[in-house]
Design a protein around this nucleic acid. Structure first.
Lengths: 243, 243
DNA sequence: CGAGCCGTTGAGGGGATTCAAGCTCAGTGG
DNA sequence: CCACTGAGCTTGAATCCCCTCAACGGCTCG
């Protein structure tokens, strides 16, 4: 499917099997450790785990002392907060190639609940590991800041786009976000109705009505297992006329 | 008002007058360059400007190539976005001691319009300057990431707290944010009604009604020049019963 | 003094919420 | 095998909160 990014002879040179896996990893080019050269990779390989989680699994909880950062290899993760008043709000989502839980690198507590939306594969990178690298690898730090920037951009765009205007337009913009995380078959993950509600700040019934309406309009086609296919042209058209 | 943080003899040792100003700066302890030692300060002094801006001045515009970061010495700055549909949304605010425009360090475009809410004093720090320091000063990079973390936290909290629930509760939570930026006299900056609207995602008339109501309830006391005093106890009480 | 901006308040309508009922579907156990 | 159950989704009806439209008052400024 994708060509290897590392020449064969270099792979041979690596003693540890995990190092080979990392070197060949498809998300590596876009992931945090894409900034590292192969030598560095070799040095740290032993510490990196690559767990898989089922949908709805909690990666980490808000307030917990951060001990690791994660690179998402596949799947979608959402960030939740619960207000003092007890309502849940989903503040953003992350997908393949994204780095999450960066606050662990600062020895801080996690900011949000991170929950798997779909089955998720991640690389787990202990926070201390990056500490030790930090002194030497300036490129890594730069890449790290780029990630931080990206997260902030995402969070601000989320709040600007998804929590303003009539419910239908918010729903359409949410779909526009979700297509960015479409899988290889062009199918998107469609949240449960109450989750859509928590993303857009609307009632779950309203979310349901909107989904039904978009289904009738031919924008959205519902499939089993929280999946859906959507018509890009009709989505654009709908977004336009929602001005 | 505040005691000097730098012994006199050290100030004497500094050749450049700007270096003295920086060393004595009251926000320095909490600002980005608090992480730098005096020697570093001495080295970079020449490049730092400290302009003042009137209220409503635009510090930088979204999309512009970033060329400098700013530390806010006094005043309040808001971050705006305009959606494709033409509506303005204020995604967060920053105050004294905050670092803004960090994306410039990555050679990126500014994410938002940054606009002065009150008269504002800043330190302007060229992006290249930090580049040159970057290799040597690990402490600075760590501090930088802490700022990034803080901005993200702010943005997420903003969207979680201020764009959900009934309008009155959002208004109260906005006031809770604004008291954090209160001046030395305990007075807060109260946005114009349309700005409140853009912060909370409500109509300006609704914002006006809420302000009037809070005034009647004794929570808020309006003063000239977009200033206000608020009763902390009554604010808490109001927040409680808004559950 | 008229023009324009900002804020306030009222009236009316509409979109979203709330309350409620019914539907599908998967899992469970008689 | 099938009733039973509960979770998730849909749809309807009534209510209400907020938006829109509108008029008006205070203030500054040319």
């Amino acid at each position: 499917m994708s060509t290897k990014t590392v020449p064969l002879f270099l792979q041979e040179a690596m003693s540890h099997p995990q190092a080979r896996v990392c070197a060949a990893c498809e998300v590596r080019r876009t992931a945090l450790f894409g900034a590292l050269d192969l030598a560095s990779l070799e040095r740290i390989h032993a510490h990196i785990g690559s767990p898989s989680l089922p949908a709805e699994a909690v990666l980490y909880g808000r307030g917990r002392q951060g001990d690791a950062v994660y690179t998402i290899r596949s799947g979608i993760v959402r960030f939740e907060r619960v207000s003092e008043s007890g309502e849940r709000r989903i503040v953003r989502v992350a997908g393949r190639g994204d780095l999450i839980g960066q606050e662990a690198l600062l020895g801080r507590r996690y900011m949000d609940d991170a929950v798997a939306c779909t089955p998720v594969e991640v690389c787990r990178i202990p926070a201390t590991l990056v500490d030790h690298l930090g002194e030497a690898e300036a490129a890594l730090l730069r890449e790290l800041m780029r990630r931080w920037h990206q997260a902030l951009e995402e969070a601000e765009a989320w709040s600007a786009d998804l929590s303003t205007g009539p419910a239908r337009r918010r729903m359409l913009k949410l779909l526009a976000v979700l297509v960015r995380h479409a899988d290889e078959h062009g199918m998107i993950w469609l949240p449960r109705r109450d989750q859509i509600g928590d993303m857009l700040g609307i009632a779950l019934e309203t979310a349901s009505r909107l989904v039904s309406q978009l289904k009738r309009d031919g924008v959205l086609e519902l499939l089993p297992a929280s999946r859906a296919r959507l018509d890009p042209d009709r989505l654009d058209a709908a977004l336009d006329e929602a001005s």
